[in-house]
């Protein structure tokens, strides 16, 4: 599903250059939940950005679902993010003026789904994440856990084949984080999607199919 080959990414130049990724290669099989583990600044987020097409590597190639991401132009990357990849942000990434249902409906509006179908699927997704009763609430009126669950529902709305989550429990308490982790595990299994999750959370690590350690921009064996 994901094939990363000899990727390099350096920020800055000269003595101040930071080698965020150095000769990183990684393969993730379809339906696999991979946990990226490493200290802050180790290169986890950069690797996720490169895989998701949010950043371009200096060298190397990235393939996602058979598409060479590193060769896509801006429109191709937009299509990739719209049809193949979905993100879950550490800070939830919800649009504050939209309700939970409207946030979840954004990817469906992008696809031009009929209104009735859209509302039906939004309701299904919110019930899937346990927020059917909070559909009309706005992010500011929900807890962090609820917001992250809305974010996951929104990520799932477009039926992506790859879910990228950057420390999705980073701002949640342990109990809520566990619930979110369990939800991601559940949707990966139920929707048959692939997921790459960066995390410090040992619970998440325990729920992953595979754990990849990142240190100083390189993948290391545990």
């Amino acid at each position: 599903m994901v094939d990363v080959r000899d990727v390099h990414r350096t920020y800055g130049s000269g003595p101040a250059a930071v080698h965020a990724l150095s000769a990183v290669s990684l393969t993730v099989a379809p339906g696999e939940l991979v946990a990226l583990v490493g200290r802050s600044g180790s290169g986890k987020t950069t690797l996720l950005n490169v895989v998701g097409g949010l950043d371009r590597p200096d060298a190397g190639t990235v393939h996602v679902a058979g598409t060479e991401v590193t060769a896509l132009d801006d429109d191709g990357l937009v299509r990739l993010r719209r049809d193949v990849v979905a993100y879950v942000f550490q800070t939830f990434g919800l649009i504050p003026v939209l309700s939970a249902a409207e946030n979840v409906g954004v990817p469906l509006r992008l696809r031009g789904l009929p209104v009735a179908d859209r509302e039906h699927r939004v309701q299904l997704l919110l019930e899937l994440v346990g927020l059917g009763a909070q559909a009309a609430q706005r992010p500011g009126e929900m807890s962090g856990g609820q917001q992250q669950r809305v974010a996951i529902a929104r990520a799932l709305a477009g039926s992506p084949r790859l879910l990228i989550a950057d420390e999705p429990t980073g701002q949640l308490d342990s109990e809520t984080g566990l619930a979110v982790m369990a939800l991601i595990r559940a949707v990966v299994e139920s929707e048959g999607m692939t997921a790459i999750v960066s995390t410090h959370d040992p619970v998440m690590v325990a729920l992953a199919d595979r754990v990849v350690h990142v240190a100083d921009g390189r993948l290391v064996d545990a």
Binding site: L54, L80, R82, Y87, F89, I95, V106
Partner: peptide, 11 residues
Amino acid sequence: EVARLQGMGVP
């Protein structure tokens, strides 16, 4: 917020 929309695939 604008960046998030683009992250979701909004052109």
